[in-house]
């Protein structure tokens, strides 16, 4: 479990507070989406969850360990994997397998164990065939999958994704999200920062950040139900919800707390049949 208590953070002493008092709990196995306008402090906030940044004030606990403790942080890093926005700037190995081996190598595991983990992790993201290749010839989507494999090789319990799909085309995006969903099903906690509301429409919980504070928090239907408020905060809602809201505005009686295509289809077609009966 990741526990954040009254977190305050400023990059420079006496500078502006970027995080202005966040408290929250992320329970094991949850899928949490974090959204908010550009510059609201999402990246700054999530970098506290694996001790990359330490609080100016307040506390962050990961599985009972304090991130400000320099000894504990060495145990926290492999537990909380992090995938970054730019696929190029997080690959350190000269081949795919060497890159995935970087994390376990840092943990000083024996080579046999590293080899096993590399193979497993690459298989989990479907990149086992590219293991000997040089990362620079991979597509951005494949690079991002390698980055995820690199994190998995440390056997993390929690994975933080900071806008991992920004540089990807739609099909690569699908592939990455599919892998993320699978990891979630396997019990890994997912904290997913994104600008694309569709990506987190199925999350267990959504946190909306605004100017360094939690502006809204709840299930997708709770959060995306407040369309006007979200617009004020500078974030959108998933496309499907947007369509249903527009339909409702034209006077139709549709549910607006639906975020999957299948459910939306069902809702709309049942609406159409009921209207046909009516005539």
């Amino acid at each position: 479990m990741i526990k954040v208590k009254d977190l305050i953070f400023q990059y420079d002493k006496g500078g502006e507070q970027i995080v202005k008092g966040i408290s929250t709990e992320i329970r094991d196995g949850m899928h949490v989406g974090i959204i908010g306008p550009t510059g609201c402090g999402k990246t700054t906030f999530v970098r506290h969850l694996n001790g990359l940044l330490t609080p100016t004030a307040g506390e962050v606990w990961v599985d009972g360990m304090h991130t400000a403790d320099p000894v504990a942080v060495l145990k926290i890093r492999p537990r909380v994997g992090m995938v970054f926005q730019n696929p190029d700037n997080q690959i350190v190995g000269m081949t795919v397998e060497e890159d995935v081996a970087f994390g376990p190598g840092n943990l000083a595991l024996p080579p046999i164990e590293i080899a096993r983990r590399v193979q497993e992790s690459l298989a989990m993201v479907g990149m086992e065939k590219q293991s000997k290749r040089s990362p620079h010839i991979l597509s951005n989507g494949e690079k991002q999958l390698v980055a995820i494999a690199g994190v998995l090789a440390m056997k993390p319990r929690h994975i933080i994704l900071d806008e991992p799909t920004t540089y990807l085309d739609p099909s690569a995006r699908e592939r990455v999200l599919h892998v993320v969903n699978r990891l979630h099903k396997e019990g890994i906690t997912i904290v997913h920062v994104t600008h694309d509301m569709n990506e987190i429409a199925r999350a267990d919980r959504i946190i909306v950040l605004y100017e360094g504070r939690i502006a809204m928090e709840g299930t997708p239907s709770q959060v995306f139900g407040h369309v006007e408020r979200l617009q004020d905060l500078g974030v959108g809602i998933p496309k499907i919800a947007e369509i249903l809201w527009s339909l409702r505005e034209t006077g139709l009686d549709v549910r607006t707390d639906i975020f999957s295509v299948e459910e939306a289809c069902k809702e709309i077609s049942s609406l159409i049949t009921s209207q046909q009966k009516f005539h």
Binding site: G81, Q90, V92, V151
Partner: peptide, 11 residues
Amino acid sequence: DLVVAMEARAY
């Protein structure tokens, strides 16, 4: 970026 990514992977 790279330094942060390496640290995140327990370097």
